[in-house]
């Protein structure tokens, strides 16, 4: 089972359409190792990100996060850098799909970029579908994950899910 409660700091990028080229530039796609990719996470958007981010932190953004290419490297670079979840007003389709397949949390919350300030301490309660903004003492409900997404989260991703299913048969 995946952890139910996550705590970390928010790195807020109050912008729409943050694309996969910004999350992990194509020039680094000659590797798929998370630790290598992690060094360049968000490089074309914010060169200081990798220095600021701490294991367990969250990225917060506005609409259509992760648009552009299908590169799963975007998820791996963020996960490698210690990011536990991305909270955004909305997500681009392939990024969202890749997140589900990796058992990585992509949380849809319409007010994300407006309500959460950079550096805010957050707690995410997955089961309750809530984000607790410790700085403001506020609580937000996010769009509940689909049953399938929860299944994959608990299985640790699609490949393990298929393996487990095969084992049960």
């Amino acid at each position: 089972m995946a952890e139910n409660k996550l705590t970390g700091k928010a790195h807020v990028y109050k912008r729409d359409d943050i694309n996969t080229d910004e999350i992990i530039p194509a020039r680094y796609l000659n590797t798929d190792k998370e630790k290598e990719l992690a060094q360049y996470a968000m490089e074309d958007l914010d060169k200081t990100f990798v220095k600021k981010v701490k294991p367990g932190d969250f990225i917060v953004a506005a609409e259509n996060f992760g648009c552009g290419s299908s590169r799963e490297h975007a998820i791996w670079a963020l996960r490698g850098a210690g990011v536990k979840a991305v909270i955004a007003n909305s997500f681009a389709r392939i990024f969202f799909r890749n997140a589900i397949n990796n058992g990585f949390l992509a949380i849809e919350f319409k007010g994300a970029a407006d309500k959460i300030k950079d550096g805010a301490g957050l707690e995410i309660d997955i089961k309750a579908g809530k984000i607790i903004n410790k700085d403001k003492g506020e609580e937000y409900s996010f769009l509940p994950l689909s049953d399938f997404a929860v299944e994959l989260l608990n299985d640790g991703g699609l490949i393990n899910h298929i393996k487990n299913k095969g084992a049960k048969r």
């Binding site: 799963e72 890749n98 699609l158």
Partner: peptide, 25 residues
């Protein structure tokens, strides 16, 4: 594993870009 896989819809096919995990599956 490429976002521009939607190209092949020009032939009346369902064609879509996915990630590497999807390709593996």
């Amino acid at each position: 594993g490429d976002s521009h896989t939607c190209t092949h819809g020009a032939f009346g096919a369902f064609s879509t870009g996915v990630g590497s995990t999807d390709i593996a599956a």
